[in-house]
Protein backbone atom coordinates (compact mmCIF):
# COMPACT_ATOMS: atom_id res chain seq x y z
CA UNK A 1 0.00 0.00 0.00
CA UNK A 2 1.41 3.35 -0.93
CA UNK A 3 0.70 4.82 2.46
CA UNK A 4 1.67 8.45 2.15
CA UNK A 5 -0.20 8.93 -1.03
CA UNK A 6 -3.25 7.13 0.28
CA UNK A 7 -3.28 8.98 3.56
CA UNK A 8 -2.90 12.38 2.01
CA UNK A 9 -5.19 12.13 -0.97
CA UNK A 10 -7.93 10.04 0.52
CA UNK A 11 -10.98 12.08 -0.57
CA UNK A 12 -10.36 11.23 -4.19
CA UNK A 13 -8.68 7.89 -3.65
CA UNK A 14 -11.71 5.62 -3.63
CA UNK A 15 -14.67 4.31 -1.69
CA UNK A 16 -12.82 2.64 1.18
CA UNK A 17 -11.33 5.20 3.55
CA UNK A 18 -7.80 4.05 4.31
CA UNK A 19 -6.42 4.20 7.84
CA UNK A 20 -3.00 5.35 8.95
CA UNK A 21 -0.58 2.48 9.46
CA UNK A 22 -0.17 3.17 13.17
CA UNK A 23 -3.42 2.52 14.97
CA UNK A 24 -4.40 5.86 16.46
CA UNK A 25 -6.09 6.61 19.73
CA UNK A 26 -7.05 9.54 21.86
CA UNK A 27 -4.48 12.10 22.92
CA UNK A 28 -5.20 12.99 26.54
CA UNK A 29 -3.43 15.86 28.28
CA UNK A 30 -3.95 16.50 31.95
CA UNK A 31 -2.52 19.10 34.32
CA UNK A 32 0.19 20.09 31.85
CA UNK A 33 2.69 22.71 33.03
CA UNK A 34 5.82 23.76 31.18
CA UNK A 35 8.61 26.23 31.80
CA UNK A 36 11.34 28.02 29.90
CA UNK A 37 13.79 28.82 32.64
CA UNK A 38 11.61 30.63 35.17
CA UNK A 39 8.89 31.55 32.71
CA UNK A 40 5.85 29.38 33.43
CA UNK A 41 4.57 29.28 29.85
CA UNK A 42 1.96 26.48 30.08
CA UNK A 43 -0.20 26.44 33.21
CA UNK A 44 -2.36 23.49 34.18
CA UNK A 45 -3.62 22.80 30.67
CA UNK A 46 -5.81 19.76 30.06
CA UNK A 47 -7.74 18.64 26.97
CA UNK A 48 -8.26 15.59 24.81
CA UNK A 49 -8.22 14.94 21.09
CA UNK A 50 -10.27 11.98 19.85
CA UNK A 51 -8.91 9.62 17.21
CA UNK A 52 -9.40 11.12 13.76
CA UNK A 53 -10.43 14.46 15.16
CA UNK A 54 -8.92 17.81 14.16
CA UNK A 55 -8.50 20.29 17.00
CA UNK A 56 -7.40 23.89 16.52
CA UNK A 57 -5.33 25.37 19.30
CA UNK A 58 -5.90 29.12 19.10
CA UNK A 59 -4.80 32.20 20.99
CA UNK A 60 -2.62 35.28 20.73
CA UNK A 61 1.14 35.33 20.38
CA UNK A 62 2.73 34.13 23.59
CA UNK A 63 -0.43 32.32 24.74
CA UNK A 64 1.53 29.06 25.09
CA UNK A 65 0.36 27.28 21.92
CA UNK A 66 3.80 26.39 20.59
CA UNK A 67 5.01 25.41 24.05
CA UNK A 68 2.02 23.07 24.41
CA UNK A 69 2.85 21.35 21.11
CA UNK A 70 6.51 21.12 22.08
CA UNK A 71 5.56 19.60 25.44
CA UNK A 72 3.41 16.99 23.68
CA UNK A 73 6.39 16.13 21.46
CA UNK A 74 8.78 16.02 24.43
CA UNK A 75 10.82 19.09 23.54
CA UNK A 76 10.32 21.33 26.58
CA UNK A 77 13.25 21.61 29.00
CA UNK A 78 10.96 21.26 32.01
CA UNK A 79 7.35 20.11 32.34
CA UNK A 80 4.93 18.39 34.67
CA UNK A 81 1.54 16.74 34.24
CA UNK A 82 0.51 13.75 32.15
CA UNK A 83 0.22 13.15 28.44
CA UNK A 84 -1.04 9.87 27.03
CA UNK A 85 -1.66 8.70 23.53
CA UNK A 86 -3.72 5.63 22.61
CA UNK A 87 -3.65 4.64 26.26
CA UNK A 88 0.15 4.81 26.65
CA UNK A 89 1.69 7.43 28.93
CA UNK A 90 4.06 9.63 26.92
CA UNK A 91 5.14 12.33 29.33
CA UNK A 92 8.30 10.53 30.45
CA UNK A 93 9.23 9.31 26.98
CA UNK A 94 11.96 11.11 25.03
CA UNK A 95 10.98 12.84 21.78
CA UNK A 96 12.27 10.05 19.55
CA UNK A 97 10.15 7.48 21.38
CA UNK A 98 7.04 9.63 20.81
CA UNK A 99 7.75 9.50 17.07
CA UNK A 100 7.67 5.70 17.29
CA UNK A 101 4.26 5.93 19.00
CA UNK A 102 2.88 7.57 15.86
CA UNK A 103 3.35 11.27 16.63
CA UNK A 104 4.68 13.71 14.06
CA UNK A 105 5.65 17.33 14.64
CA UNK A 106 5.86 20.06 12.01
CA UNK A 107 7.75 22.87 13.76
CA UNK A 108 6.94 26.52 13.26
CA UNK A 109 10.40 27.27 11.86
CA UNK A 110 10.22 24.29 9.43
CA UNK A 111 13.76 23.22 10.21
CA UNK A 112 14.81 22.13 6.75
CA UNK A 113 18.33 20.81 7.29
CA UNK A 114 20.92 22.98 5.48
CA UNK A 115 23.31 21.11 3.21
CA UNK A 116 20.79 18.35 2.46
CA UNK A 117 18.78 17.97 -0.72
CA UNK A 118 14.98 17.82 -0.74
CA UNK A 119 15.23 14.06 -1.24
CA UNK A 120 17.62 13.70 1.71
CA UNK A 121 15.35 15.77 3.91
CA UNK A 122 12.45 13.44 3.05
CA UNK A 123 14.70 10.45 3.63
CA UNK A 124 15.31 11.77 7.15
CA UNK A 125 11.59 11.33 7.79
CA UNK A 126 11.94 7.61 7.12
CA UNK A 127 15.35 7.03 8.62
CA UNK A 128 14.19 5.84 12.02
CA UNK A 129 10.89 4.31 10.94
CA UNK A 130 10.52 0.70 11.99
CA UNK A 131 8.13 -0.01 9.17
CA UNK A 132 11.08 -0.46 6.79
CA UNK A 133 9.07 0.80 3.86
CA UNK A 134 10.68 1.01 0.49
CA UNK A 135 12.22 4.45 0.32
CA UNK A 136 11.83 4.88 -3.44
CA UNK A 137 8.13 4.08 -3.22
CA UNK A 138 7.56 6.55 -0.41
CA UNK A 139 9.51 9.28 -2.20
CA UNK A 140 7.53 8.60 -5.38
CA UNK A 141 4.29 8.86 -3.37
CA UNK A 142 5.42 12.12 -1.82
CA UNK A 143 6.37 13.49 -5.22
CA UNK A 144 2.81 12.72 -6.37
CA UNK A 145 1.19 14.25 -3.33
CA UNK A 146 3.48 17.28 -3.26
CA UNK A 147 3.91 18.11 -6.94
CA UNK A 148 5.91 21.19 -6.02
CA UNK A 149 8.64 19.01 -4.54
CA UNK A 150 8.80 16.64 -7.49
CA UNK A 151 11.09 18.69 -9.72
CA UNK A 152 13.14 19.87 -6.81
CA UNK A 153 14.06 16.51 -5.28
CA UNK A 154 17.76 16.96 -5.99
CA UNK A 155 18.13 20.63 -5.11
CA UNK A 156 19.08 21.92 -1.68
CA UNK A 157 16.07 22.04 0.63
CA UNK A 158 16.97 25.47 1.95
CA UNK A 159 17.14 26.95 -1.55
CA UNK A 160 13.35 26.72 -1.96
CA UNK A 161 10.77 29.39 -1.11
CA UNK A 162 9.28 29.55 2.38
CA UNK A 163 6.06 27.91 1.26
CA UNK A 164 7.86 25.10 -0.51
CA UNK A 165 10.01 24.55 2.55
CA UNK A 166 6.83 24.30 4.61
CA UNK A 167 5.54 21.64 2.19
CA UNK A 168 8.83 19.78 2.55
CA UNK A 169 8.65 20.00 6.33
CA UNK A 170 5.15 18.48 6.21
CA UNK A 171 6.17 15.82 3.69
CA UNK A 172 9.12 14.85 5.87
CA UNK A 173 6.96 14.67 9.00
CA UNK A 174 4.31 12.43 7.40
CA UNK A 175 6.69 10.19 5.42
CA UNK A 176 6.62 7.50 8.09
CA UNK A 177 2.80 7.49 8.21
CA UNK A 178 2.03 9.03 11.62
CA UNK A 179 -1.41 8.74 13.21
CA UNK A 180 -1.25 12.09 15.06
CA UNK A 181 0.23 15.18 13.43
CA UNK A 182 1.08 18.31 15.43
CA UNK A 183 1.16 21.34 13.13
CA UNK A 184 2.63 24.63 14.33
CA UNK A 185 1.56 27.68 12.30
CA UNK A 186 1.75 25.98 8.91
CA UNK A 187 0.41 29.02 7.04
CA UNK A 188 2.83 31.54 8.50
CA UNK A 189 4.82 33.31 5.79
CA UNK A 190 3.31 31.17 3.04
CA UNK A 191 1.58 32.57 -0.06
CA UNK A 192 -2.25 32.20 -0.04
CA UNK A 193 -2.17 29.86 -3.04
CA UNK A 194 0.16 27.47 -1.25
CA UNK A 195 -1.88 27.75 1.94
CA UNK A 196 -4.91 26.55 -0.07
CA UNK A 197 -2.92 23.54 -1.28
CA UNK A 198 -1.71 22.87 2.21
CA UNK A 199 -5.17 22.88 3.73
CA UNK A 200 -6.39 20.51 1.02
CA UNK A 201 -3.64 18.19 2.19
CA UNK A 202 -4.72 18.51 5.81
CA UNK A 203 -8.32 17.78 4.84
CA UNK A 204 -7.10 14.67 3.02
CA UNK A 205 -5.09 13.56 6.02
CA UNK A 206 -8.10 14.04 8.27
CA UNK A 207 -10.39 12.15 5.90
CA UNK A 208 -7.89 9.30 5.97
CA UNK A 209 -8.22 9.06 9.75
CA UNK A 210 -5.14 10.99 10.84
CA UNK A 211 -5.63 12.97 14.04
CA UNK A 212 -4.60 16.63 13.78
CA UNK A 213 -3.69 19.17 16.42
CA UNK A 214 -3.24 22.50 14.72
CA UNK A 215 -1.81 25.78 16.01
CA UNK A 216 -2.78 28.61 13.69
CA UNK A 217 -2.82 32.40 13.71
CA UNK A 218 -5.22 32.54 10.79
CA UNK A 219 -8.36 31.60 12.67
CA UNK A 220 -10.57 31.27 9.59
CA UNK A 221 -8.20 28.79 8.02
CA UNK A 222 -8.08 26.68 11.15
CA UNK A 223 -11.87 26.62 11.41
CA UNK A 224 -12.07 25.19 7.86
CA UNK A 225 -10.81 21.79 8.95
CA UNK A 226 -11.13 21.75 12.74
CA UNK A 227 -13.89 19.92 14.61
CA UNK A 228 -13.22 21.65 17.90
CA UNK A 229 -11.38 24.67 19.20
CA UNK A 230 -9.23 25.05 22.31
CA UNK A 231 -8.24 28.59 23.21
CA UNK A 232 -5.15 29.40 25.26
CA UNK A 233 -4.53 32.73 26.92
CA UNK A 234 -1.42 33.58 28.96
CA UNK A 235 -0.54 29.91 29.30
CA UNK A 236 -3.99 28.79 30.45
CA UNK A 237 -6.75 26.92 28.65
CA UNK A 238 -9.65 29.37 28.73
CA UNK A 239 -12.19 28.05 26.25
CA UNK A 240 -13.11 24.73 24.63
CA UNK A 241 -15.93 24.64 22.14
CA UNK A 242 -17.16 23.27 18.83
CA UNK A 243 -16.14 25.01 15.62
CA UNK A 244 -19.71 26.01 14.85
CA UNK A 245 -20.17 27.67 18.21
CA UNK A 246 -16.83 29.42 18.01
CA UNK A 247 -17.49 30.70 14.50
CA UNK A 248 -20.64 32.51 15.63
CA UNK A 249 -19.14 33.73 18.90
CA UNK A 250 -17.70 37.08 17.85
CA UNK A 251 -17.06 38.06 21.44
CA UNK A 252 -14.85 35.05 22.11
CA UNK A 253 -12.94 35.58 18.87
CA UNK A 254 -12.36 39.23 19.68
CA UNK A 255 -11.39 38.53 23.26
CA UNK A 256 -8.82 35.79 22.73
CA UNK A 257 -7.78 35.76 19.11
CA UNK A 258 -7.85 39.34 17.80
CA UNK A 259 -4.38 40.71 17.18
Amino acid sequence: MSTVHTVLSAPTAGAVPPVPHTAGGALVIDGLNAWYGRAHVVQDVGFAVAPGEAVALLGRNGAGKTSTLRAIMGLMPRMSGTISYAGCPLHRAPAHARFHRGLAYVPEDRRIVPGLTVRENIRLGLIASRERRDEDTVIADIARTFPRLRERLDQMGTSMSGGEQQMLSIARAVAAGPSLVLLDEPSEGVSPLLVDEMYELFAGMKAAGTTLLLVEQEVERALEIADRVCVLDQGRLVHVTSVDDFRTDAAAQARWCAL
Binding site: L75, P94, H96, F99, R111, V113, R123, L124, G125, A176
Partner: peptide, 24 residues
Protein backbone atom coordinates in the same frame (compact mmCIF):
# COMPACT_ATOMS: atom_id res chain seq x y z
CA UNK B 1 24.76 5.68 3.84
CA UNK B 2 21.90 5.99 6.26
CA UNK B 3 24.34 6.56 9.11
CA UNK B 4 26.07 9.24 7.09
CA UNK B 5 22.80 11.08 6.57
CA UNK B 6 22.15 10.95 10.31
CA UNK B 7 25.64 12.37 10.93
CA UNK B 8 25.21 15.18 8.39
CA UNK B 9 21.79 16.11 9.74
CA UNK B 10 22.90 15.73 13.36
CA UNK B 11 25.77 18.17 12.85
CA UNK B 12 23.28 20.81 11.66
CA UNK B 13 20.08 20.16 13.60
CA UNK B 14 19.93 17.45 16.27
CA UNK B 15 16.42 18.55 17.31
CA UNK B 16 14.85 17.56 14.01
CA UNK B 17 16.54 14.16 14.24
CA UNK B 18 14.92 13.57 17.64
CA UNK B 19 11.52 14.60 16.31
CA UNK B 20 11.99 12.14 13.42
CA UNK B 21 12.61 9.24 15.77
CA UNK B 22 16.40 9.12 16.03
CA UNK B 23 17.85 8.55 19.49
CA UNK B 24 20.59 11.16 19.19
Amino acid sequence: TRWGLIIRAGARDPLILRVLGVDV
